[in-house]
Amino acid sequence: MNSQTVKKIRAFRKELHQEPEVSGKEQQTSSKIKAFFEALQPDEIVEDLGPYGLGVVFKGKEKGPTTLIRAELDALPIPEVGNHRHKSKNQGVSHTCGHDGHMAIVCGVGLELAAQRPEKGKVVLIFQPSEETGLGATQVIESTNFAQIQPDFAFALHNLPGYTKNEIVLKKGAFTAASKGMTISLHGKTSHAAHPEDGLSPAEAMCKLIIALEKLPESIPDFSLVTVIHAQLGEIAFGTSPGEAQVMATLRTFDNKTMQALTNHAEKLAGLIAREQGLDYNISYCEEFEAVINDVVPWELVNDAAKELALKRKHIRTPFRWSEDFGKFASLTNSFLFGLGAGKQQPQLHEGHYDFPDEILETGVALFTAIIKKLNY
């Protein structure tokens, strides 16, 4: 990648960083990406891949595989801290997960493809909405227009603070955890606080749930984790004994089968405690992520490409506990998600001081391009 290309994607990354948009609201970000690629004259730009999602298509003249490279459009509702010149202009919203950098890398791949078109098959650069809520990949895959893409391979990266800059982090099988947000609502009966015996308070059940949910993984043989993140009992009214309560928890496992087992156990536990206290209850879920399961064939492609580029590689044994909705693509086709070291001293993801390091952009572009050359040239 020449110096002009590097300069261009660094500048574009900072432009994206200054105008972040949260999940489901990425209209301007999507428009910027579309305008960037219109100037490159790809073979096709596929729109309406979920709300604001789009795919940029570069076709070869010969038959061959369809290779999908994915980046995320959305930012986080986190106030940015720091004094860099390209700081977020949207108060309370920031690219503190580095999706601005992921987009810039895939835009850099587009510049390389525009300069040298694929020889066979096609390459589709997907810019996906709503990764942070776990909705986006499903919206893309279930959209009508995705039927014309049908990838044979899918690749994505995530920057990783805590790892040496430009180090490539690899793992076969599970790479990131499955997770879901679980809300258990308990329904009793309010009464005057002077006569709590006339009502049915869910206080005891709520307390039992908080303790029992976090102990639940002890009964699951494989890795699982339950983190209670919020609980609410009644309202702030000193004259009222509460009749309603909610307990919210995040469930995590390293594979989707274990997630189903953990979910079943949690639901049975909630029902047992609610019935024991004579309460009605209901359960709902949000932000559901499948585990990202990396396939062997694309692992070999990425590993070989990194080796050829003389990049430092780190092969990890334990999956990351955080989640990524690339798991939906992983369940669809041959796929691989890898890590790109963002620096050992880099602030952590989802932290107000985080800013994607421009020094790793070129490595991301080079590795994706090398992977594509193995499949489409």
Rank of each mutant, 00 (worst) to 15 (best):
V297S: 04
D358N: 14
G364I: 10
A342E: 01
S335Q: 08
L332S: 10
F289S: 03
L279Y: 11
P298N: 07
G352H: 04
F326C: 04
C286K: 14
A270P: 01
A342G: 09
E308F: 03
L340Y: 05
G352P: 11
N334W: 01
C286H: 15
G278Q: 07
Y285K: 11
E308Y: 04
I360C: 08
K328M: 10
E288K: 15
I293Y: 02
F326R: 04
A306F: 03
A310W: 00
E290S: 13
W299P: 00
R321L: 08
F326P: 01
A270G: 00
L272Y: 00
R317T: 14
L332Y: 13
E300V: 05
H353F: 10
H315F: 12
I316A: 02
G327H: 06
A305R: 09
E362A: 14
G341N: 06
A310D: 14
V365H: 06
Y354E: 06
W299Y: 15
N334I: 05
Q345G: 00
T363G: 08
N294E: 01
Q346W: 00
P347D: 11
A310F: 09
F320T: 05
F320M: 09
T318D: 07
F329T: 02
A270V: 00
A306S: 07
F320C: 02
T333I: 10
G352M: 08
W322G: 02
C286A: 15
D304T: 15
E308S: 13
Y281D: 07
L272W: 00
A310H: 14
K307F: 13
I293E: 01
N334M: 09
P319R: 11
F326N: 03
P298I: 07
Y285Q: 11
L311E: 07
G343Q: 00
E287D: 12
Q277R: 05
R275E: 10
L361D: 08
A270C: 01
F336L: 11
Y281W: 13
Q348V: 10
Y354M: 11
N282S: 15
G278N: 09
C286M: 09
L349G: 05
G343M: 02
E359C: 12
R317W: 06
E300F: 05
G352F: 07
D280L: 13
